[in-house]
Structure formats: structure tokens, C-alpha cells
Design a protein around this nucleic acid. Structure first.
Length: 862
RNA sequence: GGGCGCUUAGCUCAGCGGGAGAGCACUCGGCUUACACCCGAGCGGUCACUGGUUCGAUCCCAGUAGCGCCCACCA
């Protein structure tokens, strides 16, 4: 025999205890295969790939935001009957993983990477990954992420590695990947090249030193922030039209400290208005100078090694670049060559985004992706609407980037990553070999690995089996939505666009949903140094996953940062608890969920059903616009203000009368729908409640509510609005008069067309008996008069004061609206609807004034 | 150096051409049998400033001030 619903309810505690239900519910969902996509179903597919977290990472608050939004989209689509795939994966995260394992080896074995052969070290990284990596996957379960665990991928797994090699080979054969000696961003600590976007610029204090090169009439003064690089100067450049130096172009000057003679060249790049208009040229250590050098056939003199230690022979050899800087300035000063020194001189300096070390522009042989055509197609796909960016305002940033992209340096001098699939012959020939292809014996593979973002750029299709023509690939590509923070737009989104369009000849996804960054409760960026970082797991432990999720959703206005604080999570927890208890109420009162809705229903029931339809329609519209914050807000207020504060209270009357069965059915209907509407954002509490309420299998696979316009009921909405108006007035009166909420007061109501029982119940007004002696008469909105028999005399002064305030407001309202209507320009030009509204408002104000006047007159003298 | 955005209640933010909103905080009153993680009532804003457009501006335009973000190879 099955338990009756009220019995179930009586077993529910009065507080929702998330920790007791979440884990079991999640495992049940996974076991039942709810999250596993069926490639063979006839449903419409809906795909999102999870931005792969670093294998070294753990769930931080930013993940909690993104994952909540994705899970909400995914869960709603599943309920709507789509074949949903949310594919999880992890990123091997080249530099950070390698650094972490190096440190790990240092701490546990007292050894460094160089104590191992490359293969041994890489094996150690894999071992580390097996033991400690992927911590985040378990944490995602805590959050409730409904990802398809059967399809989990890793950027270094066999399939994705084959995809990397395949696309590399194609790009190489198409001459879109090339190897060249260029000035690249070099981190002297990580000892690897970096792409432009892995460099963060900041305004740092430096120095601007002006140095005189050459002697007498043939001398020029150059200014530099990097005096030490003068050791590698191979020219001085001036602007071709600069008359001051015209006579020197083609001449040579002696470079101080070295006695080398270097030419003076004319180049358009030089800004004659800056400094002295003459520039020292160090082709091996500055990207601009490199270009100047190339244009004028200047030699590149490398004066530093990979650790930024001076290698140029002489007194500075062996010094670090910073030590060398002051040493060079000192030496120049001794020779009397310093014309001026400006300190501090604030200028932009690039830093390694990983370790914050100052970047050293370095001349070296690296691999690059030729981005011009790829970037063009990525830009076009957004321009012509094949891919939408939400919010659209952020598209400008996207274009700004793709329209001005430089070639992408993809080689990294690391051991952990996808090794560049190019081999060199003993004669230095090179050739790229695709997957399954073997280089001839004796050839050696390029030692470098690829930028981590190279493999993540393939994620939307490599995870589905590409380059094989798999069923998954056919069915789930393109993805529908990509959800990520706007800070990842350049790193990842643009590159997925480029590679997706190149490899698949189709966009990787149709919509890019960009959310903001999490900030603390005062709007500050979270950072370790500020000490304001929060661990979402702590909040999940304390308040439940749903509370964390709802907080995230509630803050997620498109593209804008999301401030969060613990008290906000508490608020969300409170909301979950409210749902819990309201649903308990429904259960305790025998709410039913099956069978047709009765046609004869009390006003309150018809009202809430009417409101429900409007809410469903609005929630759907908001989901289409990815307005998560507004969805959360709408459902919060519908659930709390309308369902709990009014409907549940109103319904108590019906439940005690012969309309109870009909009301029980509506009660069930409303909570059934409400829980389904909330499920995508707060999956656990809704699952626990919905299965109790309905006896259904799981809300995860329950159908998404569909609005029924035939239940819209303006009459019921008016009737309940009238009740609310009277109730609110009486409550205010009682409160002002200091009448205890529990105190029942005899009262007589007149002028009411319906809802007397409800009003009496809500504001504890007893039916007037034979000894009824009203001491107060309340004229409330809508022409309803409530006479009350208060045992004590009322506080006339308080009531008079309140009425006076109300009267002033009503008079102001009347004057404002009357003035508008008296203005012919307004009545002539404003839309009819607006004029009508103002007319209504004026009428309402007039009747309010009359009502309040009467009330004031009726008050006894103080 | 370029570009973008923001400035609305004590705090964090919605609203973006026709009656100033929410959450939290605050004040007052309540254990009213779903919930004190609650209920009811209330206080609180010349919508940064200055002009302009409009019958009407928090909302559109211009300028000013302050704040923030992104991009950037002027030594």
C-alpha cells in the first residue's frame, strides 16, 4: 500500500536539510541515466560543452556561476523534450600543471624536472593527474551539474590528441601554420614563449634615460627605458622627414661602452615628436626594432640568454637584466653620456599572466598560426548572424579583437602538452606527420608542445569524435550554446570559432552567452591578496547546493559582474526552506495532482492559476534571452509573495469548506508547476518536494510547464486585488493602532461584493455580534467600509496623522494628473492609452480624496 | 594612447520616454497550528552634475566630474 500524501508530509521535517538529500539524489540521477544523451533518439538535440576546467583545478566560485547557468539551460531543455547533451571535460593546462608537478616533485622527492628524462617527467605528470587531478569533477557533483559522465573527455586523451594532430597537419599543409624566427613574448621564469593574450600589461614605475651616442656634430641623443639593451643596438633610427637629423642619415655613430659603429637609418616608425626624435634600435630585443631591423637589413645581436642574463662579452656579462640596467647607466654616466634621467617614469610593462614575471621580448624560432583568413571567417560568422553573442553589447569587444589579431604563437617550451607533430631529418629537412603516420628512422621530433588553448579550441567537435565521422558528431555539432565568462572571449571563444569554422565548415555554436565575473559583496574583485576569495564548497556545506546556485542565478544579469556575499546565500537558503514548507503545507492539506482541473473554482484558485500562466510565459521569454537574474527574481517573488503570502493564506478558507476538493486539486497543480519551473535552478529541493508531492519518478524528466491561455482570468485577478487592498488597509490600521496580530476584533464590512470570509480570515475580524459597538470606521480602497469594535479607544491622533499623510499624497496625485489633462499639448500629442491612464488615475485620486476626507470627518475629536 | 561601460534607497543592483523598484540592512508589532531560515506594518531616493530634444526625461542627445574594465610594439 502506498503512503498517502499527508503521511509523507508529516514525515518531512519543518526545515529543509540539503546535506541529507543532495548526495543521494545526485547519484540516483546518474544511475538512472538522466544525464546520458541518446544519440539514437528522435528528439531534437541540444548541446552545450562545458568549458573544460584545468585538471589541476578545484571548483571556485566562478565555476559555480557558469555551471549553474549551463545546468539550468540544460535541465530546462531536457524537460522540454530535447535530447540534451552537456559534455564534460578537463584541460591539461600545460604551464600550470607542469609547474605544479615540478613543485610537487621538489617537495616530495627533493628533485627537479631536470633530474628526469622528458619521458619520465611526463609519466610523472600523468601519475600526478591520476592521483590528484580531476578533483573538480567530484565537486561538480556537489553542485548538481547534470553532465553526461559517459562522455567525459580530457584534452590529452587519445582521441583529442589525434584531433590535435589532425588539425595541425591540415593547417600545416594549408600553409596556415608556419615556423619563423620572431620576437615573441618570453617568460624568463617559465622559460617558454607566450602568446600575446598571456601577457598582462600594467603601468609600472621605470626610468627614461637619455643617452648621447657619437661625438660632436655627429652625435644623437636617444631615450630608453631599457638602457641595458643598448649593448645590442645595431642602429639609431630617425624619421625620414626630420630635418634635424637629415644630415646624419647614412652616417654612423660610435655606440658607447662597445666602440661598435652603428648606422643611422631613416624609418617611418619613428615619431619625431617623441623625445629627441631619435631611437636606438635593438632588433633582437624589441618587436619594433626587429621590424626596423628587417626593413634596413640590420643584424640582430642577441645579448641575453633565456633567463634574461646578459651574455654579451664584457663587464656586464652574467648580470641579470635589472642589475645590468643600473650598471650600464652607471657606466654611461661615468663617460658623461647621460643627458637626462627621468625617474620614476611610468610606462606599460608586460607581465607573464601565469607568474607575473616581467616579459622579455625575445628573438627565437617558434611556431605560429597564420590567423588572417581564420579570423576573418570567425568575424563574419558573428557579423552575418550565424553566431549570436549575448549580451550583444559584448560583440564589439569580439570584433575589436578578431579584426586586429596578430599571428598566434602556438609553441611552448614545455614538456607537458601536445608535442608539435613535426620531425626533422638529419639534414634539417622538416615534415609534419598526421596521426598514424610515422617519420623515417633517425628523424627527431620538434621538442616543443602546443599552447594549451590550441587543443581547447577544438573542444566543440574533438569531444564528439572528430576527425571520425561519428554519430555523436553528426548529431550534436554544432553545439547550441556556449556559456563562459567574458574574460575568456579572446582566449577560447575566438579560437573555437576559428578552428570550428575551419575544420567543420560550420560554426561551433549558435549562441555565445557571456556572464560576468564574481565579485565580493562590496563589488570588489575576488583575489587571494585581498583575502576575499570564497570557496563555494564551504557555502554548499553550510547552505546547500541549491542556495549557492540560486544566488548565482539571481545575480546573473547578462554580461555584468556578479557580487555575492554570504548573507545572499542565506537568503537563497531561506527561499529553499520557504519552498519546502509551502509544499509541506500543500501535502498536509491533501493537494492532488491528477485529474482535470475543476471548472467551478473559488476566486483565489482561479486567480493563482491565471497568474501561473503569466509567469510561465514570462519565464520562457526570459530564458530565450538568457536573463537568469530576472527569471530567478520573477520566480522568487511569484513563489514567495503571491503563492505563499496570499494564495496559501486565502486557500485556508476554501480548505475548510465544501470547495476543498477542488482547491486541493489547484493547490497540487500550482505547486507541481512551480517546482518544475524552479527545478533548473534549484534541482535538489525541487526534486525532493516534487516526488513527494506527485509521487512521480523524477522532476528531472518531468515535462516543462506550458502556459494555458484559457486559464487567464481577469475577473479573478480583480477580485483578489480587491481583497488585497482591503486586507492591506485593515492591517495597516491594526498595526498603527497597536492591535496585536493575534487579537480578534469584531467588525462589520460593507460595500463588498465578494471575499468577506477571506478578508475576515486574513485580518482576524470576527462577525459582529448583538453587542457590536464600533469605535472605528475604516474607509478602504474600492468603497469598502470596515467598522471595527476595538475594546479600547483608538489612537485618534495616530490615525489622523496617517490619513493626513495619505490625503497629501492623494492630492498631489490629483494635481499632477489634472495638470497633465489641462495641458492641450499633452492631450493632443500623447497616445490615447496614456491619456486614458492619466484620466483613470485622476478619478482614482479624486475618490481617494473623498474617502479620506470622509474618514477624517468621521474621526472623533482628539 | 585608443575603445567601452558605470554613477538610482545605508549596501549590492534591476528599471532605460509616460505613476521611482528588489534583496539585504534598519524601525515597530507578533511563536496568527506550512515555515521565526517566519509573519504583518513601516522608514528610506532633487535617479552624479550642467545644458538640450520632447506635451512629458531616471530613461534620448551633448558636455562636465568621479569610478571601473578592455585593448595597445611610442622608445
Amino acid at each position: 500500500m502506498t503512503e498517502s500524501r499527508p503521511e509523507i508530509a508529516s514525515n518531512l521535517p519543518t526545515r529543509y536539510a540539503p546535506a541529507e538529500v543532495e548526495g543521494a539524489l545526485y547519484e540516483r540521477w546518474v544511475e538512472r541515466g538522466y544525464f546520458t544523451a541518446d544519440v539514437n533518439s528522435d528528439k531534437t538535440p541540444y548541446t552545450i560543452v562545458l568549458p573544460p576546467p584545468n585538471v589541476t583545478g578545484s571548483l571556485h566560485i566562478g565555476h559555480a556561476l557558469g555551471h549553474t547557468l549551463m545546468d539550468a539551460l540544460i535541465r530546462r531543455r531536457r524537460m522540454q523534450g530535447f535530447e540534451v547533451l552537456w559534455l564534460p571535460g578537463m584541460d591539461h593546462a600545460g604551464i600550470s600543471t607542469q609547474t605544479l608537478v615540478e613543485r610537487h616533485i621538489g617537495e616530495t622527492e627533493g628533485k627537479s624536472k631536470h633530474d628526469y628524462a622528458r619521458e619520465e617527467f611526463v609519466a610523472k605528470v600523468w601519475a600526478w593527474k591520476e592521483e590528484y587531478g580531476g578533483k573538480i569533477l567530484g565537486q561538480m557533483r556537489r553542485l548538481g551539474d547534470g553532465v553526461d559522465w559517459t562522455r567525459e573527455r580530457f584534452t590529452m586523451d587519445e582521441g583529442l590528441s589525434a584531433a590535435v594532430r589532425t588539425i595541425f597537419k591540415r593547417l600545416y599543409d594549408d600553409n596556415l601554420i608556419y615556423r619563423a624566427e620572431r620576437i615573441i613574448n618570453w617568460c624568463p621564469r617559465c622559460l617558454t614563449a607566450l602568446s600575446d593574450i598571456e601577457v598582462d600589461h600594467s603601468d609600472d614605475d621605470g626610468e627614461l634615460i637619455s643617452i648621447r651616442y657619437g661625438e660632436g656634430d655627429a652625435s644623437v641623443v636617444v631615450a630608453t627605458t631599457r638602457a641595458e639593451t643598448m649593448l645590442g643596438d645595431t642602429a639609431v633610427a630617425v624619421h625620414p622627414d626630420d630635418d634635424r637629423y637629415a644630415h646624419l642619415v647614412g652616417q654612423t655613430v660610435t655606440l658607447p661602452l662597445t666602440n661598435r659603429r652603428i648606422p643611422i637609418v631613416a624609418d617611418d616608425h619613428v615619431d619625431p615628436t617623441f623625445g629627441t626624435g631619435a631611437v636606438k634600435v635593438t632588433p633582437a630585443h624589441d618587436p619594433n626594432d626587429f621590424e626596423i631591423g628587417r626593413r634596413h637589413g640590420l643584424p640582430s645581436l642577441v645579448i641575453m640568454n633565456e633567463r634574461a642574463i646578459i651574455t654579451a662579452p664584457g663587464p656586464f656579462q652574467g648580470l641579470d637584466r635589472l642589475e645590468a640596467r643600473s650598471a650600464v647607466v652607471g657606466a654611461l654616466r661615468e663617460e658623461g653620456r647621460i643627458v637626462s634621467e627621468k625617474r620614476p617614469y611610468v610606462h606599460a610593462v608586460g607581465h607573464c599572466s601565469r607568474c607575473n614575471t616581467v616579459i622579455e621580448p625575445r628573438l627565437s624560432l617558434q611556431w605560429f598560426v597564420r590567423v588572417e583568413t581564420l579570423a576573418k571567417s570567425a568575424a563574419d560568422a558573428v557579423r552575418d548572424g550565424r553566431v549570436a553573442i549575448e549580451p550583444p553589447t559584448l560583440a564589439a569587444r569580439y570584433f575589436d579583437w578578431v579584426d586586429n589579431m596578430h599571428d598566434w604563437c602556438i609553441s611552448r617550451q614545455l614538456w607537458w602538452g601536445h608535442r608539435i607533430p613535426v620531425w626533422y631529418s638529419p639534414d634539417d629537412d622538416m615534415e609534419c606527420f598526421g596521426p598514424g603516420e610515422a617519420p623515417p628512422a633517425g628523424w627527431t621530433q620538434d621538442p616543443d608542445v602546443l599552447d594549451t588553448w590550441f587543443s581547447s579550441a577544438l573542444f566543440p567537435f574533438s569531444t564528439l569524435g572528430w576527425p571520425d565521422e561519428t554519430a555523436d558528431l553528426k548529431r550534436f555539432y554544432p553545439n547550441d550554446v556556449l556559456v563562459t565568462g567574458y574574460d575568456i572571449l579572446f582566449f577560447w571563444v575566438v579560437r573555437m570559432m576559428m578552428f570550428g569554422l575551419y575544420a567543420m565548415d560550420d560554426v561551433p555554436f549558435r549562441t555565445v552567452v557571456l556572464h560576468g565575473l564574481i565579485r565580493d559583496q562590496s563589488g570588489k574583485k575576488m583575489s587571494k591578496s585581498r583575502g576575499n576569495v570564497v570557496d563555494p564548497l564551504d557555502w554548499i556545506d553550510a547552505y546547500g547546493a541549491d542556495a549557492v546556485r540560486f544566488t548565482m542565478a539571481r545575480g546573473a544579469n547578462p554580461g555584468t559582474d556578479v557580487p555575492v556575499g554570504e548573507e545572499w546565500v542565506q537568503g537563497s537558503r531561506n527561499f529553499c526552506n520557504k519552498l519546502w514548507n509551502a509544499t509541506r503545507f500543500a501535502l498536509l492539506n491533501g493537494a492532488t495532482v491528477s485529474g482535470e482541473l475543476p471548472t467551478e473554482l473559488p476566486d483565489a484558485d482561479r486567480w493563482i492559476l491565471s497568474r501561473l500562466q503569466a509567469v510561465i510565459t514570462e519565464v520562457d521569454a526570459l530564458y530565450e534571452r538568457y536573463e537568469f537574474a530576472k527569471i530567478a527574481d520573477l520566480l522568487y517573488h511569484f513563489a514567495w509573495d503571491e503563492v505563499c503570502d496570499w494564495y496559501v493564506e486565502l486557500v485556508k478558507i476554501s480548505l475548510a469548506s465544501d470547495t476543498a476538493p477542488a482547491t486541493r486539486r489547484v493547490l497540487g497543480e500550482v505547486f507541481d508547476a512551480l517546482l518544475r519551473l524552479l527545478h533548473p535552478m534549484v534541482p535538489f529541493v525541487t526534486e525532493a518536494l516534487w516526488t513527494s508531492l506527485t509521487g512521480g519518478e523524477s522532476v528531472v524528466v518531468a515535462p516543462w510547464p506550458v502556459a494555458d491561455p484559457s486559464r487567464a482570468d481577469a475577473g479573478a485577478e480583480r477580485a483578489v486585488a480587491a481583497i488585497q487592498a482591503v486586507v492591506t488597509d485593515v492591517r495597516r490600521f491594526r498595526s498603527d493602532q497597536g492591535v496585536k496580530p493575534s487579537q480578534r476584533v469584531p467588525a462589520r464590512l460593507s460595500g463588498l461584493s465578494a471575499g468577506e470570509a477571506e478578508i475576515r480570515s486574513l485580518v482576524r475580524l470576527d462577525v459582529a455580534g448583538s453587542d457590536f459597538a464600533p469605535t472605528a470606521s475604516l474607509m478602504t480602497a474600492g468603497g469598502v467600509t470596515v467598522e471595527l469594535d476595538l475594546s479600547a479607544a483608538i489612537d485618534v491622533a495616530a490615525e489622523r496623522a496617517r490619513l493626513a499623510k495619505e490625503l497629501a499624497a492623494a492630492r498631489k496625485e490629483r494635481d499632477v494628473n489634472a495638470a497633465k489633462l489641462g495641458n492641450e499639448a499633452f492631450t493632443g500629442k500623447a497616445p490615447d492609452a496614456v491619456v486614458a491612464k492619466v484620466r483613470d488615475r485622476l478619478a482614482a485620486a479624486d475618490s481617494d480624496i473623498a474617502r479620506i476626507d470622509a474618514a477624517l470627518t468621521a474621526l472623533p475629536d482628539a
